[in-house]
């Protein structure tokens, strides 16, 4: 669905250098701190910025060669941009009807009613959560094959976030060839939704892993200095000095559980993996 190969973009103080794939039938997550390069990657994928080198292919075509018909198969949510806020949701129905052949006014209006979104009010008068919901509903409204979602749940409360994530799951269930690329800094969103995850830091992909593998095999070892010194370190990805000794990130939790039963090992979660990948040191 999407293949990014050695994409490079230089902004002087910031360099983006990433490769990424989003496969049909899967939800790919891109996670990273603010300013890590998520939005720059999305902008490059959407052809909003030119890139210095590398290639980006969507539906097997270079992104610069996408036609208007190809773009109808994309559903987009951008964190800080959307339809003009001077428009009403009713206006959006008229506009989307002319842009997308597969736009379904009935489905869109039904979902708006489910989410209690007023149709005649200008978007600029909506709450942050409501604006976020409208953006997501627009992206889902025209049976796109590929959703590109940059921070779609930003500004939403827990319940609204769950509702939106459920919409993404239903969207995927409707057609197994569909695919989603989603970025978020809320790891719990991605943990329960994505099939695989890319972590980006300072413009570089620092980790790519299946979410199941990440949750099952990754772990955080908490060792005192003596335990740390005698430990086999071949599966330690990062380590960090702590007041009690060392915390170590491993991708082979089972190995350490079996061989070092006296060492405390915590189940990995995305937040801890990110923190260790960014702040930890390599042995």
């Amino acid at each position: 669905m999407l293949t990014i190969t050695d994409l490079k973009k230089n902004y002087g103080s910031f360099q983006l250098d990433c490769s990424l794939r989003a496969e049909p039938g899967s939800i790919t997550g891109l996670i990273g701190q603010n300013g890590a390069g998520k939005t720059t990657t999305f902008k490059a994928v959407l052809g909003l910025i030119a890139h210095d080198s590398g290639s980006i292919q969507i539906f097997g075509k270079d992104v610069s060669a996408l036609t208007a018909a190809d773009k109808e198969n994309l559903g987009i949510v951008l964190s800080d941009s959307g339809f003009s806020e001077y428009l009403t949701v009713k206006d959006l129905v008229t506009i989307q009807k002319t842009f997308y052949k597969n736009f379904s006014s009935r489905d869109f209006l039904k979902k708006c009613s489910d989410f209690q979104i007023p149709l005649d009010k200008k978007i600029q008068d909506f709450s942050t959560g409501m604006k976020a919901k409208v953006k997501v509903l627009c992206a889902l409204s025209h049976k796109a094959k590929f959703l590109i979602l940059d921070e779609p749940t930003v500004g939403l409360d827990v319940i609204a976030r769950d509702e939106i994530l459920e919409l993404f799951r239903s969207y995927m269930e409707e057609d197994e060839e569909r695919s989603i690329l989603i970025s978020s800094h809320i790891s719990s969103d991605l943990e329960g939704l994505c099939d695989d995850l890319y972590m980006i830091h300072s413009g570089k992909i620092i980790l790519h892993e299946d979410v199941d593998t990440l949750l099952d095999s990754y772990g955080l070892i908490k060792a005192d200095p003596a335990q740390f010194n005698r430990m086999d370190k071949q599966y330690i990805l990062r380590y960090r000095k702590e007041p009690y000794g060392y915390s170590c990130l491993t991708g082979q939790k089972q190995f350490y559980m079996e061989n070092y039963p006296d060492v405390a090992i915590e189940k990995g979660n995305i937040d801890e993996v990110i923190t260790m990948m960014i702040k930890g040191e390599i042995l």
């Binding site: 959407l46 773009k71 951008l78």
Partner: peptide
């Protein structure tokens, strides 16, 4: 252009 609107606008299906 208002509120970075062009970013989203230029992802819509037109050249």
């Amino acid at each position: 252009e208002y509120h970075h609107g062009n970013q989203f606008l230029f992802t819509l299906p037109f050249l």
